[in-house]
Simulated scan of single mutants.
Amino acid sequence: MSIQWKGVMPAVTTKFTDNDELDFDMFEVNIKAQLMAGVHGIVLGGTLGEASTLLDEEKRELTKFTVDLVKETVPVLINIAEQSTKAAIAAAQKAEDDGAKGLMMLPPMRYKSGDRETVEYFKTVANSTSLPIMVYNNPVDYKVEVTLKMFDELLKCDNIEAVKESTRDISNVTRIINRFGDRLKIMTGVDTLALESLLMGADGWIAGLVCAFPKETVAIYELQKAGRIQEALEIYRWFLPLLELDINPKLVQNIKLAEVATGIGSENVRAPRLILHGEERKHVLAVIAKSMRTRPTLPDYKNL
């Protein structure tokens, strides 16, 4: 299966049992809800997936389980966030062996690589695998920006196909299109700029709150694609207080609380993360409760 870089691809959370083991039963509940809603791909092991806390064998178990569960109805991607080029190459090979259909790649972790080092890192990994790659460009959180000039060089690798655009600069969508046309697909990666990015020409949405609200997320994408902008906008305006839970240091805990509210997740996180408490918890629960009370009735977005 080649990847069509379009539509909604949830960056799914990793589910844990009370004993801090992978909770495949609850994970399956959530993935089936995503598929039923009509998502276009599944992204494993991102920030929302608590990748930095997962053991290597756990990442492989998640990949194999998800590949078997979706049965090629949608592509399964896994995130690569490593500290060395050697480790990133090994992770790419394991992903390919385990049945993943693509990679989402961050720049090197911890060390703030320079432009030349960042380009060499991505190109070396790309040349080591046949899997298509989406470069995750998030200078706000990861302090390394992949500039258009750097993409000029990166796109010499045929399997670097897409960017997860998370610069927070909405005009960057237009810059990418003007410079690269259809050669570099754009997947918006910031929930609170998603509809704006799609309307400016982004091909799809790597989403966070979709983990708890898959139907609403896919409905926004399908409605705007069909030109029914006002309907998409109405859902998006309802959604925004929830989407803002994603642009927060506690996004994992926030979104897992929302998954509990919609019945497709649990609150368990892996230490050093702790579940929310006190005023912080009250605030998030209040946002979720209000959104649940005013949850919109969706049109038949699957048959537009």
Score class of each variant (00 low, 15 high):
residue 1 M to C: 15
residue 2 S to I: 09
residue 3 I to D: 01
residue 7 G to Q: 08
residue 19 N to I: 02
residue 19 N to E: 15
residue 20 D to F: 10
residue 28 E to G: 11
residue 29 V to R: 14
residue 32 K to M: 13
residue 34 Q to D: 10
residue 41 G to T: 08
residue 41 G to A: 09
residue 43 V to F: 10
residue 45 G to I: 01
residue 46 G to K: 04
residue 47 T to M: 14
residue 65 F to Q: 08
residue 67 V to P: 05
residue 69 L to P: 05
residue 81 A to L: 04
residue 82 E to R: 02
residue 83 Q to P: 00
residue 86 K to G: 05
residue 86 K to D: 14
residue 87 A to F: 10
residue 92 A to Y: 03
residue 92 A to E: 03
residue 93 Q to F: 10
residue 95 A to W: 03
residue 100 A to P: 08
residue 100 A to D: 09
residue 104 M to T: 08
residue 108 P to N: 09
residue 108 P to K: 07
residue 108 P to G: 09
residue 112 K to S: 15
residue 112 K to F: 05
residue 113 S to V: 15
residue 117 E to D: 08
residue 123 K to E: 02
residue 123 K to D: 09
residue 124 T to M: 02
residue 125 V to Y: 04
residue 128 S to P: 07
residue 128 S to H: 06
residue 129 T to D: 02
residue 129 T to C: 00
residue 131 L to K: 05
residue 131 L to S: 01
residue 136 Y to I: 00
residue 142 Y to I: 12
residue 143 K to H: 13
residue 144 V to C: 04
residue 145 E to P: 05
residue 146 V to R: 01
residue 146 V to Y: 00
residue 150 M to I: 05
residue 153 E to C: 06
residue 155 L to T: 04
residue 156 K to I: 06
residue 158 D to Y: 06
residue 159 N to Q: 08
residue 159 N to G: 11
residue 162 A to I: 08
residue 165 E to Y: 04
residue 167 T to K: 01
residue 170 I to K: 03
residue 172 N to I: 01
residue 172 N to G: 12
residue 174 T to D: 13
residue 174 T to E: 02
residue 175 R to D: 10
residue 179 R to K: 14
residue 181 G to I: 04
residue 184 L to Y: 02
residue 185 K to F: 07
residue 191 D to Y: 02
residue 192 T to M: 08
residue 192 T to E: 10
residue 193 L to S: 06
residue 193 L to N: 07
residue 198 L to V: 08
residue 200 M to K: 14
residue 201 G to C: 05
residue 201 G to R: 07
residue 204 G to L: 10
residue 206 I to K: 01
residue 209 L to D: 01
residue 213 F to I: 11
residue 214 P to S: 12
residue 215 K to S: 12
residue 222 E to Q: 12
residue 222 E to C: 02
residue 223 L to H: 07
residue 226 A to T: 13
residue 228 R to D: 03
residue 228 R to V: 00
residue 228 R to Q: 11
residue 229 I to Q: 14
residue 229 I to E: 10
residue 232 A to W: 04
residue 234 E to A: 15
residue 235 I to S: 00
residue 236 Y to R: 11
residue 237 R to K: 13
residue 243 L to G: 07
residue 244 E to D: 07
residue 245 L to C: 00
residue 245 L to T: 07
residue 245 L to H: 03
residue 246 D to F: 05
residue 247 I to D: 09
residue 250 K to W: 11
residue 253 Q to A: 12
residue 255 I to Q: 02
residue 259 E to C: 11
residue 260 V to I: 11
residue 262 T to A: 09
residue 262 T to S: 15
residue 264 I to R: 06
residue 268 N to K: 12
residue 268 N to F: 08
residue 271 A to K: 15
residue 272 P to G: 09
residue 276 L to H: 03
residue 279 E to K: 09
residue 280 E to M: 07
residue 281 R to K: 15
residue 291 S to T: 06
residue 292 M to S: 11
residue 292 M to C: 08
residue 294 T to M: 11
residue 294 T to A: 14
residue 294 T to Q: 15
residue 299 P to Y: 11
residue 300 D to N: 15
residue 304 L to A: 10
